[in-house]
Design a protein around this nucleic acid. Sequence first.
DNA 1: GTATGAATTGACTTTTACGTAAAAGTCATG
DNA 2: CATGACTTTTACGTAAAAGTCAATTCATAC
Lengths: 128, 128
Amino acid sequence: MREYYTITELTREFGISTRTLRFYEDEGLIAPVRRGRTRLFRPSDRHLVRQILRGKRLGFSIAEIREIIKMYSEPPGEAGQLQAIIGTIEEKRGELRQKRRDLEETLDELDQAEEACVERLAELGVNT
Amino acid sequence: MREYYTITELTREFGISTRTLRFYEDEGLIAPVRRGRTRLFRPSDRHLVRQILRGKRLGFSIAEIREIIKMYSEPPGEAGQLQAIIGTIEEKRGELRQKRRDLEETLDELDQAEEACVERLAELGVNT
DNA sequence: GTATGAATTGACTTTTACGTAAAAGTCATG
DNA sequence: CATGACTTTTACGTAAAAGTCAATTCATAC
C-alpha cells in the first residue's frame, strides 16, 4: 500500500479531472494533506474517491454522498446521534432497495427489447 | 384501464410538477395527444412517465433515458439498425450491472456502518 | 540560472433539469 | 355569466456539478 498519490495519478486512475478532485475537496468530501501547497492523497482519500464515484454512478447528489460518507466514519459517542445515524442508514437502505427494483425491471425490459430485435433479425434473415 | 389522464392527475400520482411533464414532452420523451390545446395522457404515456422516473432514480440523464426508451419501441426494419440497437442494449446492460455492483457494495458498507453504531450503543448501555 | 512540466488558485462559463412568474385560454358549477 | 380550478404558452431564473482559462508557483533537469 503506497503512502501517497499525486492528484494526477488519481485523475488518471479514476478518469476524472483535477478540477473535480478540488471540487470534492471544497465540498468537504475529501481532505488530502499538503506538502507546501501540493495535495498528497493517502490511501484513505483514494478510497473516499472510490466511494464518491460509486455514489455518483448510483445517481446520488454530492449532498447525499456527503451524508453517506459521514456514516462510514467513526460513530459518535452520544446515543441520540447514534439513533439518528441508524435512522438515516435505514432510509438510504430503502432508497438503494428501490434502485435495485428499478434496476431489475430495466434489465428485464432491455432483455425483452433485445429479444424483439433478435426476432426481427431472424425474420429478415428468412425473408431475404 | 382508463383512456385518458389529465396532467394534474399524473403530477399527483407521480409527485412531479406540470413543468416537469411539459419538459419531458419538449425533450421528446412523451407525446400526449391534444384536445384543443389541452394535453391528454394515455396509459402508454403514463407508462413512459414511469419508465422515465425509474431511469432518473437510477441516475440516468434525460438523453440516456431517451436512448433507453427508444429501444423499447418497435424494432426497425433494417438489419444494420437492429445490430446497432442490440449493441446499445448490451452497453446499457453493462452500465446497469456496474450499478448493481455499486449498489451491493454500498448496501454492505451501510450494514457495517449500522453494526458499528449498534455496537457503540451497546457500549454506552453498559457504561452508563 | 533558466526552461520545462506539474500543481495551485480564482474567476468565469457551461450544461442539465427543471422552477417560477406572467398573461391568457377552458370548462364545470352555482 | 361569473367564479374558481385547471391548463396553456412564453420567457427568464437557478442550483448542481463540473469545465475552461489565466496567472502563478514550484521543483528540477539541463
